[in-house]
């Protein structure tokens, strides 16, 4: 393709190509602190004009690649970076087999990992960014990668995708990607993980606590039992079924060894307090 870049995050490398210069330049900027990658990438993503004339006239980006969803609608070129990030997520969700993937944010302290597992809107990314700011190492805000051989969490520290309200909470902190306005997810900006998290992106951590956060409710915390946790995690995993026996062994080990709790929170300060209490 006309423009391309290869980036590596944690264990996975992506080749992203585009018909236009701008999304590739934005990606280069977003990933400029990540180590260069010169090998054969795990996944290919292509951002191409939905129709030939759409390269110039109201340019719109069709998402292609090794793994695609037929219902993924094209995005305007101004959201090309979002298209690239979504496409990279999609490759992991549908194509990655070396770890059990949980839709979760993960941070680490003292070699132990905290997994925050929740649906979109549960506030995973915001909580991960806030914890990261207070000194936790960022392992990832989108996927927790559980190693079937060891049970450890492998980092996948992509830039954290934050909505406008959360951007305001964290402004003046860290390095940011360009602002994307009016996307299907609202206004979005990416917070780049700190250099220590990027430098340690191949160093796993032992899962120590698994939380299911829920935003917009009065503060509450309750223990989650094995059966409930197992069901919640199978539905939060994009590749549990695909991994077969390895998925079953990995998930049952996680559920048996890691304490689980559901927490409700009305705002992030309350959530951080709850988390610190449960972490001890």
């Amino acid at each position: 393709m006309r423009h391309s870049v290869t980036v590596r995050v944690g264990p996975a490398a992506f080749r992203v190509g585009a018909d236009w210069r701008s999304p590739i330049e934005q990606l280069r900027d977003l990933y400029r602190d990540y180590p260069a990658f010169g090998g054969v990438p795990d996944f290919t993503v292509s951002l191409s004009a939905a129709r030939p004339w759409r390269r110039w006239i109201r340019p719109s980006v069709a998402i292609g690649g090794d793994f695609t969803l037929p219902e993924a609608a094209p995005l305007p070129l101004a959201h090309g970076l979002l298209a690239a990030e979504m496409a990279m997520n999609l490759q992991m969700a549908l194509g990655w087999r070396r770890h059990l993937l949980l839709h979760a944010a993960t941070v680490e302290r003292d070699g132990r990992a905290l997994i925050l597992c929740g649906e979109s809107g549960a506030g995973k990314s915001t909580l991960a960014a806030m914890l990261h700011r207070t000194g936790w190492r960022l392992l990832g805000d989108e996927f927790a990668l559980i190693d079937p051989a060891t049970g450890d969490v492998h980092p996948f520290p992509r830039p954290i995708s934050l909505k406008n309200s959360s951007v305001a909470l964290l402004r003046d902190h860290g390095r940011w990607g360009s602002l994307l306005t009016g996307t299907p997810k609202g206004d979005i900006r990416h917070l780049i993980p700190d250099p220590a998290s990027i430098a340690a992106m191949t160093r796993p951590a032992v899962p120590a606590l698994l939380l299911f956060p829920r935003f917009g409710f009065d503060a509450a915390a309750r223990e989650v039992g094995g059966s409930e946790g197992f069901v919640r995690l199978t539905t939060a995993s994009t590749n549990y079924t695909g991994l077969g026996e390895a998925g079953f062994r990995t998930l049952t080990r996680l559920v048996h060894h890691v304490p689980m709790a559901a927490i409700d929170y009305p705002d992030t300060d309350v959530a951080l307090t709850l988390i610190e209490e449960l972490w001890r």
Partner: peptide, 21 residues
């Protein structure tokens, strides 16, 4: 095989075995 290729192909074999099953 060059580094990086072997795990990709191992995954592909694994996926094919899952498909067979």
């Amino acid at each position: 095989l060059p580094a990086g290729v072997a795990p990709i192909l191992a995954d592909a074999r694994d996926a094919a075995e899952a498909a067979r099953r």
